[in-house]
Design a protein around this nucleic acid. Structure first.
Length: 339
DNA sequence: CAGATTTGACCGTT
DNA sequence: AACGGTCAAATCTG
């Protein structure tokens, strides 16, 4: 934690360089008779790479706030990403009592939180929020004041077995019942969730229909289709940090604290605002879930929707955000940085 | 029978 | 005191 920036610099450079390389590859593909898939993949990887780079810059630079946001959001489950729904980060956490005293007791308060809005199209036969690739277990439901529909509370199925404290709340929109507002809290530290990436939602669905078979098989295809069917609701992004809720990159790590969890994967982001995790795989994989429809969107949106990296095994590298600051001397002129 | 869901009670925060 | 979030016993499901 102490010497975090160095790593960030390296990561930033690495991300940008990677993006450049991928762009070159894509260019080559444009001439060749490569498949659309390969181009898409390259494209997504490029976007992901730049997104991570921006995240780094954003963190460092701005307002010096604990942008837990991004991180946290990062990946936990970013359903969003999958469908590209918007993520309105509202982390409540951090700043205030981020001093880090009693972690346990303040866990809730400091846990980053972000909200996704997912619209389910009737034609898809999906009645609830899509599945975000993780396994959730409902632990409560409550009628919320002023809300027409009750709010459902879910926690990771592996809370006990893998000490995964990710939770989410699902609330159906009053105005448009086809829209579900999903608020995620904490990030997954469990190893699951990846496998079944995007399957049509299952949790809410369970309550209504019961067919959750197709999870894994059609994951990819389903994901793609599902994405297109979901409507992204973007709420005043202006107010949001440009930080992507999701994952990111690699590097933050100058800090050593490599996760306290034993497994080789860990969550993309820990509940503590000052923690960030990094997944080596995310660098290359998470993009998969990103979707094309964002291509036309603006930068902000792209950034805010990222996601899915939820799947890959993750290495949790904790580090303190407080350490992250944009270094005025950052070597942007590093060779190869922009070429 | 194990695991998931339901639901009223309990607790912390505001 | 009200509200939101979580717990946990009862119940359901495969």
């Amino acid at each position: 934690m102490e010497s975090g920036w160095c790593w960030e610099q390296q990561t930033l450079i690495a991300e940008l360089v990677q993006g450049m390389e991928l762009a070159k590859q894509l260019r080559a593909h444009l001439n060749a008779t490569s498949s659309v898939e390969s181009r898409d993949e390259l494209l997504q990887r490029i976007l992901a790479s730049y997104e991570r780079a921006l995240l780094i810059l954003n963190w460092g630079g701005s307002m010096g706030q604990p942008q837990s946001v991004g991180v946290s959001a990062g990946v936990p489950e970013s359903p969003i990403s999958i469908n590209g729904s918007s993520r309105s980060d509202e982390f409540d956490g951090g700043v205030k009592d981020n001093q880090g005293y009693n972690e346990a007791s303040k866990k809730r308060k400091t846990t980053p939180r972000w909200t996704d809005h997912v619209r389910v199209s009737p034609e898809n036969g999906l009645e609830g929020p899509h599945d975000d690739g993780y396994s959730w277990r409902k632990y409560g439901q409550k009628d919320i004041l002023g809300a027409k529909y009750p709010r459902s509370y879910y926690r990771c199925t592996y809370r006990n077995t893998q000490n995964c404290w990710a939770t989410k709340q699902v609330q159906r929109s009053d105005e448009d019942p086809t829209i579900f507002e999903i608020t995620y809290r904490g990030t997954h530290t469990c190893a699951h969730g990846n496998q079944s990436i995007p399957s049509p939602e299952k949790q809410e669905k369970k309550q209504k229909n019961t067919n959750n078979n197709y999870q894994q098989q059609q994951s990819q295809q389903a994901l793609y289709n599902f994405q297109n069917s979901l409507k992204v609701i973007t709420e005043d992004l202006d107010n949001k940090e440009m930080v992507s809720p999701f994952s990111f990159p690699s590097a933050y790590g100058c800090s050593k604290n490599v996760s306290s969890y034993s497994p080789s994967f860990i969550s993309p982001a820990t509940p503590e605002p000052t923690h960030y995790s990094v997944s080596p795989f995310q660098m290359n994989n998470f993009v998969g879930a990103h979707n094309l429809q964002h291509l036309e969107s603006d930068f902000t949106e792209i950034i805010s929707t990222n996601t899915s990296a939820t799947n890959s095994p993750i290495v949790d590298l904790d580090f303190s955000l407080d350490q992250v600051e944009l270094d005025p001397n950052f070597p942007f002129d590093t060779p190869g940085f922009f070429s």
